[in-house]
Structures are given as structure tokens and as C-alpha cells.
């Protein structure tokens, strides 16, 4: 008791001493370590500040450009803060992309697709993580294959596949010919239901890893108590999957939102923000031609300005989503413990 007290006194004594005094007592070690600590933090600050600036700079640049008039773009004095502040660019970009409708369409499609994909991938991931069945390794190899195959490889034949759609000859029997499913949303929903959507293999892999890290005891207890397989899954396992489900859902939503490849292929005639953005420059020149009646080429600076505005308008919902769900994005990947 007395020893600990004397220790405490020693500590308070040391705290009362001046820095120079303490440094002398430690033989110069204190000064050296404090200096090193500050030096490290300054270097770290500079490094991280530089890298963060580098990542954020394009967005900041877009924001400042999006408020400029065309005259400001050519003015060498104007760099970041516009001289003639305008919101005209936003109005024009919104009109060219038919923003309101595209936003609603994109929201509906991204939400439903993400929901469908996550549900299906959850089932499949659980199946791979928990059950032993014949050919399991083969099917899992197929999952890896799905991750590795670039969708562009099979794009052309998917095109034809859905152009002349037939399922085991059933459609031919009923309908008397093949179905043309191009230009409708059905193929993409079908593909999502079959885990063949955008990056679905990755979700299956992540979910499988997540389930493998959960101890099996709970499920075994449920089985012993006479709970069926599906019931165990919905009642016992599902409540625990919140982190991985949120992260997969957010990824599915965001990647679907910005995806151009599948959208262009299957959802070509539905107005989406992603395809609208891809066509923005073309529609700008068409618009200006219509307004002036003269065949003109739009200047690079102006079309890029409109493009920057359009990009900002598209990523704005995502940034808002990210602000709210930032923890879910970052932490759920960490908790899923991806390992091989």
C-alpha cells in the first residue's frame, strides 16, 4: 500500500517538474522522443493532406466550374471562384438529361435491383458457407469464374440470347416463336435473380466469408430444438447479418446507379441518370443546333462545363447517401473479414 502511494507521489512530483528538468533526468531521451513524435505527425499531416486534396480536387474543381458562365471559362483570371455566378448550367443539364424523371427511374431500378441481388446472394452465400453437398467445390469454382469473367466477353451473345429468348423450348410451345426481350427490364431482373448481375459473384464471396466467421452453435441449437433449415435461416441467422447486408446493398445500389454497361445493354430505352450522363455531350450539341438553327460544334470548354455539372448532379445523391451510411460502408467490409 505504502509503496503504491509513494509511486503516486513520485508521479505527481515528476508532473510538477519542468520539461527541461524531466529531460535532464531522462538523459535527453524525452526531448528526442517528443521531437520525433511531432515530426512524425507533421509529416503524416502533410502526406495525408496532399493525398486527400488530390482525391477531392476533381470534385472541388467541378463544383467551381459548374457555377461559371461561358465567359468565365475563357477568362484567364478566373480560376476557382466564378466572376458571374450562375445556376444556368444546372438548369440546362437537368433539362438535357430529363433529370427529374431519370432520377426517379434510377432510384426505382437501383433500389429494386439491389434488393433482389442482395436477397439472392444472401441465400447463395449462406448455402456455400454452411452446407455440405455434392459438387460444392465445383459450384464455388463457378462463383470465382463469374467474378473473373469480364461481362464484355459474353456481351455479344447475351445480346443475341435475349433477342431470341427461349427457355428449354417452353416459350416456343406456348407462344409459337421466340420472345424478343431486348429493350425491356425483364432480362436484367432475371439475371439478377440468377446472381449474374453486376459484380454479384463478389457479393456471394463476401457474404460467404461473413457467415463462415459466425459460430455454428446457434444454428445447431435451433436444429436440436426442431427448427427447420429455412426457419433457422430467417429467424436465427438473418438478424445477425445486418452489417454485411447493409454493405452489399449499398454497393449494389451505388454500382447499379453509375453502371453504364448493363444499363446500356438492357435498359437502353429507359431514361436513367447513368445513360443520360453518357449521352450528355451529344444532346448538348443537338440542343444548341435546335436553338440556333445553325450547324455548330460546341466548344470543348463549354461542353466539359455542362458535363461537370451533370456529373455533380448524378453523384450528389450518392454523396448524401455516403454521408449517412459512411460507417456502414467502411466498417461492414472490415467486419466481414475477407480472407482466403
Amino acid at each position: 500500500m505504502s509503496k503504491s502511494r509513494s509511486n503516486k507521489e513520485l508521479v505527481t512530483d515528476v508532473k510538477k517538474m519542468s520539461f527541461r528538468e524531466r529531460n535532464r533526468l531522462s538523459g535527453g531521451y524525452l526531448l528526442k522522443s517528443t521531437l520525433r513524435k511531432y515530426l512524425v505527425s507533421i509529416c503524416r499531416f502533410l502526406l495525408l493532406f496532399g493525398m486527400c486534396f488530390m482525391i477531392l480536387q476533381p470534385i472541388l474543381n467541378k463544383i467551381s466550374v459548374s457555377f461559371m458562365t461561358e465567359a468565365d471559362l475563357y477568362n484567364p483570371i478566373v480560376i476557382a471562384i466564378p466572376e458571374h455566378f450562375t445556376t444556368e448550367n444546372y438548369r440546362l443539364a437537368a433539362e438535357l438529361m430529363s433529370y427529374g424523371q431519370a432520377l426517379v427511374n434510377s432510384l426505382v431500378i437501383s433500389f429494386t435491383i439491389a434488393l433482389l441481388q442482395v436477397t439472392v446472394c444472401l441465400l447463395v452465400g449462406y448455402g456455400f458457407a454452411r452446407f455440405e453437398f455434392p459438387l460444392k467445390r465445383l459450384w464455388f469454382a463457378c462463383v470465382i469464374l463469374v467474378i473473373l469473367i469480364p461481362p464484355q466477353t459474353i456481351a455479344s451473345s447475351l445480346h443475341l440470347h435475349f433477342r431470341f429468348f427461349d427457355f428449354l423450348g417452353i416459350v416456343k410451345l406456348v407462344h409459337g416463336g421466340t420472345l424478343n426481350l431486348r429493350g425491356s427490364v425483364i432480362p436484367y431482373y432475371l439475371m439478377s435473380a440468377g446472381c449474374m448481375g453486376l459484380k454479384n459473384g463478389l457479393y456471394i464471396f463476401m457474404i460467404r466469408q461473413f457467415f463462415r466467421n459466425i459460430p455454428v452453435d446457434l444454428e445447431e441449437a435451433a436444429y436440436v430444438d426442431g427448427c427447420g433449415m429455412l426457419r433457422t435461416f430467417t429467424r436465427v441467422m438473418l438478424p445477425q447479418t445486418k452489417p454485411i447486408v447493409t454493405s452489399c446493398f449499398l454497393f449494389a445500389f451505388v454500382w447499379q446507379w453509375t453502371d453504364g454497361f448493363y444499363s446500356k445493354m438492357f435498359l437502353g430505352n429507359i431514361k436513367l441518370v447513368s445513360t443520360g450522363l453518357a449521352r450528355l455531350v451529344d444532346s448538348l450539341s443537338a440542343y444548341i443546333q435546335r436553338m440556333t438553327g445553325v450547324l455548330t460544334t460546341v466548344s470543348i470548354a463549354y461542353s466539359n462545363c455542362i458535363l461537370a455539372t451533370g456529373t455533380l448532379m448524378i453523384i450528389m445523391p450518392l454523396i448524401i447517401l455516403y454521408l449517412f451510411a459512411q460507417r456502414a460502408f467502411v466498417e461492414s467490409i472490415s467486419t466481414s473479414g475477407i480472407k482466403m
Binding site: V120, L123, G127, R130, F131, E132, F133, H161, M229
Partner: peptide, 24 residues
């Protein structure tokens, strides 16, 4: 359990056979 497992991964099997094997 084996049966249940196959049922769980059924969506993937169907999707793979329908939309991946044939186009590939």
C-alpha cells in the same frame, strides 16, 4: 442438409446455367 444446401444455392445454379454457360 445436403438437399437444403443445394436448394439454397439453386438461384446461382439456375442463373449460371441459363445466363452464363450458354452465352459463354
Amino acid at each position: 442438409k445436403a438437399k437444403a444446401g443445394i436448394l439454397f444455392i439453386m438461384p446461382f445454379i439456375l442463373g449460371f446455367l441459363l445466363f452464363m454457360v450458354k452465352p459463354l
